[in-house]
Amino acid sequence: MHRRSFVVGSAAVAVLGQEGWTRSGRQAWAQEAYPTRAITIINPFPPGGAADVVARPLAAVLEPALKQPVVIETKAGAAGQVGAQFAASAKPDGYTLLVHIVSISGFAEVDKLYGRPVKFTRDDFIPLARLIADPMVLLVNDQQPYKDLSQLVADVRRRPNELIYSSSGLHGALHLPTALFLRAAGLQMKHLPTNGGGPALTALIGNNAQMACSAIAAAMGQIRAGKVRALACLGAQRATALPEVPTMKEQGYDVEFYLWVGTFAPKGTPEPIVVRLREEIGKAAAAEEFRQAMKNIGQDVAYLDQAEFKAFWDADAKRVEDAVRQIGKV
């Protein structure tokens, strides 16, 4: 139980009671006027991660609109599984929501791969909105001679399983796109998993790995300082921040991968509440305050409402599941 929501909730009930509302009247009112107490958004990653830095400004804009506190609760663990599972099994009343990233699509597939009972699937969530979608970039460090992707591909093909790529962890958001690229190009490299995006970048810059994929925002400082070079962008179009970096598709590899952040409600959340949340999140995504906050972290708002987000998510999940199967059991 969330202490803050409990306190706020009981305070609200107390106020209503004083005003002499009947029980049935109160329920009818509650149905019309969701929300009546604090809303919790579960952040399944350690503080400061992509989900966190998007959810917090969003919550700040949502609060005055919903006239209730919107609390970010960190439930990190097992690369985002713990928080997602918590949200999946939360009461679907619109008071527990989830913010998650691209890797949410992979957990069920990984469980299947290892013959574990599947804890939750994508069907356990109602997508509300996508907020940002940062295309990944493929990086090499400044000690490597490659000026473009074709040089890298040629060298890796000449000496398979010699060069190393680092990632944020097995089946993580940095591992999946690399695996997709390696398959598309028919290459073999050694995998150096670490325990986060920061350590993966550190390994690359320290030349303990020679290649890595990263979200643009996370690597921008290092790209500008010349410590790493971006050889390809994994978006459908070139990124506005890096207009000179060609896409994978331009270079003949059908690979697309985004580090996106979206919001979800547990399955079974009543439709009127879902509609209200979609409206408010849509308005918040357009708000100047939120756009500025996203600009600060080097992102453009890439808002998609439920229908488009659902279509995008379905296509994206295919890519992720594909990548998980491609990596296989290690």
């Binding site: 400061g48 917090r56 920061g198 600060n296 080097g298």
Partner: peptide, 19 residues
């Protein structure tokens, strides 16, 4: 330090060698 870097990022200062 990861959280501190996120704090810088939120304020529009990308942490990097050029800080």
């Amino acid at each position: 330090t990861a959280v501190l870097m996120a704090a810088l990022l939120i304020h529009g200062i990308p942490p990097g060698p050029q800080l």
